[in-house]
Amino acid sequence: MNQRINITLKLFAQYREGNFKVEQRVCKSGTTPQDIIDELGITKHLPLGILMVNAKHENEKYVLQEGDTLSLFPKVGGG
């Protein structure tokens, strides 16, 4: 499991506060969105609303692949 993958990580709405908007990351192969969420600690105060990988909804257990874009949102809405 020494293989590394490159991903793009995007945060939105309140998750940006004290963090970043977008970041390129190198992760070890097998990394899931949950691993990243835990590391960032963003869901401590505000639960996860929407998780997308490459513009499609995924769940926290998805295994990230080389070149993936992971987007994380708290619950948001409008209309």
Partner: peptide, 24 residues
């Protein structure tokens, strides 16, 4: 409610630009 109680007062309905854009 996290949307009507937090998200909407903080960002307005325009919070949707990024999520709808991310969804293609």
């Amino acid at each position: 409610n996290p949307i009507s109680g937090e998200g909407m007062p903080a960002f307005g309905t325009n919070v949707l630009v990024n999520i709808i854009n991310e969804a293609g």
